[in-house]
């Protein structure tokens, strides 16, 4: 395991250049280019805001900020896991012909989505300033561990799914369905206030719940998130990563033959 991590570290330049390739390649040909990074979540937020404040009335103050703060990190998670699941299969040619630690492909895929999220945070801060609710600089620092925790969770799941997808191509579609359900199991469009104890416990099994709650705490409620919950979030993220990697290692040996 340690040898593997060293191996992957040796190939860190490959991660960088693949991330760069993905980001550059993705937007270079479209007319609006990099703007799509912002436009896509922006439109999503407008639609959801319309649905949840006009159709279903709710009396939350600045609901669109609440939504944005949760939606941007979720978009990262959704894209990372949803598209990362195919990261090995889609690079079959490379995998079959060249040796490199296979995790690199998955890591690069997740990382490029992560960079996308960082860029999208421009929207979050734009909204916050427009609405005039302001930020709490002390709390803002806590964004870093929250993001790290989310990255670990996303990478853990993606490693797991990308390795399985090699053997079972259905997995990509299954993941799609899973992600569709998952968004509703995470308090992004609703709050936990006033839910029953049982529902809250159920939702807290979802590793993304703690993470999204932490984002809300920092940017919407402007408070320092609960250190305990954050610690658990990081720990869970780490455990998921280890599990994902173990599964990946177990399945990796036959990649070249299965593809």
């Amino acid at each position: 395991m340690i040898q593997r991590i060293k191996d992957i570290y040796e190939y860190r330049d490959m991660v960088f250049s693949l991330v760069k390739r993905e980001l550059r390649g993705r937007y270079q040909k479209s007319v609006l280019g990099m703007l799509w990074t912002f436009l896509n979540p922006l439109c999503q937020i407008i639609v959801y805001t319309f649905v949840f404040s006009v159709i279903f009335e709710n009396n939350m103050e600045n609901y669109y900020i609440y939504l944005t703060v949760g939606m941007i990190p979720w978009t990262f998670f959704n894209e990372a896991v949803g598209q990362g699941a195919g990261s090995i299969v889609n690079n079959a040619d490379m995998t079959k012909k060249i040796y490199f630690p296979r995790e690199v492909l998955t890591i690069a895929s997740v990382t490029s989505k992560f960079v996308n999220m960082l860029l999208s945070f421009v929207i979050v801060f734009l909204f916050i300033f427009i609405s005039g609710i302001g930020v709490n600089p002390a709390a803002l620092l806590w964004l870093i561990p929250v993001m790290i925790a989310e990255y670990l969770v996303a990478l853990g799941f993606t490693l797991f799914f990308s390795a399985i997808t090699v053997y079972l191509r259905d997995m990509e579609y299954i993941v799609g369905v899973l992600m569709m359900a998952w968004i509703w199991a995470t308090p992004i469009m609703y709050t936990l206030d006033g839910r029953s104890e049982a529902v809250i416990t159920l939702l807290k099994i979802n590793p993304m719940t703690n993470i999204i709650l932490a984002y809300h705490d920092i940017l919407y409620y402007k408070v320092i998130p609960s250190i305990g919950a954050l610690g658990i979030g990081l720990l869970v993220g780490f455990i998921l990563l280890v599990i994902g990697e173990i599964v990946f290692i177990r399945l990796e040996g036959n990649f070249a033959e299965e593809l």
Binding site: Y11, D13, F16, S17, L18, K20, M94, I98, F100
Partner: peptide, 12 residues
């Protein structure tokens, strides 16, 4: 060149 070389495990 940089991308291709990095896949061979060569540092930038």
């Amino acid at each position: 060149i940089y991308i291709n070389a990095s896949i061979f495990g060569i540092k930038a």
